[in-house]
Write a protein that binds this DNA or RNA. Structure first.
Lengths: 301, 301
DNA sequence: TAAAAATACTCCATAGGTATTTTAT
DNA sequence: ATAAAATACCTATGGAGTATTTTTA
């Protein structure tokens, strides 16, 4: 009736506002919440008129919160957190897992490791909706960090403040070569055998590339970098035309090996591993579905 | 985008839901939040469909919360509390008092004590909107308790669980008589002088009536109860036609005494007092305007 | 001058009102 | 039989989209 709580304040607006403050960007906050920049702008405006105060000082060059603005921020953050926790608790109570899990994964994992897990997961929990985004490593980190997705799958995890890393599996790194390639003839292979060989690698900013570089460097081996690609599929296609050899995760080439399009060669005794991990924001509230998903990945390995 | 927080959940709905649970009544919750019963019903329904679960089991006779329903309740209560606290903090920061104070007062206080305070309050804080409801004592308590108003003003405060009582003033209880009444001739008066006298009182459920009864009883005095009314104004009118005398708070008859329509006689040395107090719900979050209002009442006395 | 934010304008979904029916005591 | 809650129906509103202008870096 006369209660000031009578206001056009939608819970989802609070979340958007928090993102706005976090990102200091209307358009980013908009993207994070699946609305347009215009909407965010209007939301803020209506909040300012509702509370009858300036929230963000946009007069100067810099995005600057007023004292009221930061008070709002901290309260809203708390409320959003409570609300999200509530949602998780409710899901838990309903004891039928549901909801959506939004996963962003490096293509190699997404294409060659994830499917097996995914299959048993959706079989057991058909009510859960898993969305998979296939992206480059750095973008996976970015997605996770800015909160646009729930879980990330990456190789060679690097620790970051405000990220939780959950290792869940390892892949063996092996040599991939065309069946007709001389190297394929050898029964055993050592890294040294790769000296001066035509080599196909990932682009330099991709962790697996950095790992293979290190392997070669430590063995004192120099290769002729013939081609560089940003994903494993293209690398395999290049090997298939015998443009060179590559060091790849074994899991990514099973099909081609089976069909004799590629040869897989173990790299000596000291076999090299590619550790895989799940990442998520430290402050992320994992709902039961996500938790179960994580548990499955950890268990199966 | 895919976030479950994306929901038609208005902050004010949370408050309404809490009231619904508290009162176990759709219509009461509706009244408390200035909407129709229909709206409350629809809100609940849409919440149930949104969370896809039963919240209130209305199948049986009794209003019964599901486990999910009570989980919702506790979380919503926390959120509402956070939000209300936020609003207060914001008001405080804006350092111009504003908002609305909703006061429910016993008529005698509202008509004869409050105006002086009110005058200086609205002079000092013209931006604050004070609404006054004039009601019978028990209804003031009720209003306060069910949260439909912020502050209550009553005499002879009684302690109640979940109510805070703030004494702020005292009124002297005096004898009111028609100027032509024999009693008015006496220079001093003792309670005993009222023996067998025609008496006009408040109705039995009114605290001041109970107080005067006690005064008379303790003095062993019996009066002839000629008339009973539920408010002081009518009592005074009855005295003016000389239907009897009454014991009234001095403050309520100043005007009539001045204009010689009533005589005021002190009741002996052991003057009787009527304590006045402000009441509010213990869990009420007092915004700065209310706090200031209370401080003013306390200070002036 | 290019990106980000604000604004103008429009549209549609929905929240909530009135009126009524259904249900429970 | 009566009070409370649910439902049917309708309308107004305000939230958000598109398109555009304005701002600022």
């Amino acid at each position: 009736m006369f209660l000031s709580i009578r206001a056009a304040v939608h819970i989802s607006n609070l979340k958007t506002y928090c993102d706005l403050v976090d990102t200091k960007s209307f358009s980013k906050a908009a993207r994070l919440n699946g609305v347009t920049q215009s909407a965010v702008s209007q939301q803020l405006k209506s909040m300012e008129s509702h509370f009858d105060m300036l929230i963000i000082d946009r007069s100067q060059k810099k995005f600057r919160l007023t004292p009221q603005g930061s008070k709002l921020y901290s309260s809203f953050k708390e409320i959003v957190r409570l609300y999200q926790r509530l949602e998780c608790d409710l899901q838990e109570m309903s004891n039928v897992l549901s909801g959506t899990i939004h996963v962003s994964t490096v293509t190699s994992i997404g294409l060659h490791v994830l499917p097996a897990y995914l299959k048993s997961f959706i079989k057991e929990f058909p009510t859960v909706n898993v969305r998979v985004e296939y992206r480059r490593s750095n973008l996976v980190y970015e997605d996770v960090q800015n909160g646009s997705i729930d879980l990330g799958l990456i190789a060679f995890p690097v620790k970051r403040k405000d990220l939780t890393v959950i290792p869940f599996s390892e892949d063996e790194l092996v040599l991939a070569a065309h069946p007709s390639n001389p190297l394929s003839k050898q029964k055993t292979l050592k890294v040294n055998d790769l000296h001066k060989v035509d080599f196909i690698g990932f682009e330099r900013d991709i962790p697996t590339r950095q790992a293979t570089d290190k392997i070669l460097r430590q063995a004192g081996v120099e290769v002729k970098m013939a081609m560089e690609f940003d994903n494993v599929e293209t690398v395999k296609r290049a090997i298939e035309i015998n443009a060179g050899v590559a060091i790849l995760p074994a899991s990514t080439m099973r099909n081609e090996v089976q069909q004799n399009q590629l040869s897989q060669l173990s790299l000596g005794n000291d076999s090299f591993k590619r550790p895989l991990a799940i990442i998520h924001r430290k402050d992320k509230i994992l709902n039961p579905a996500m938790q179960t998903f994580i548990d499955l990945l950890k268990k199966k390995s």
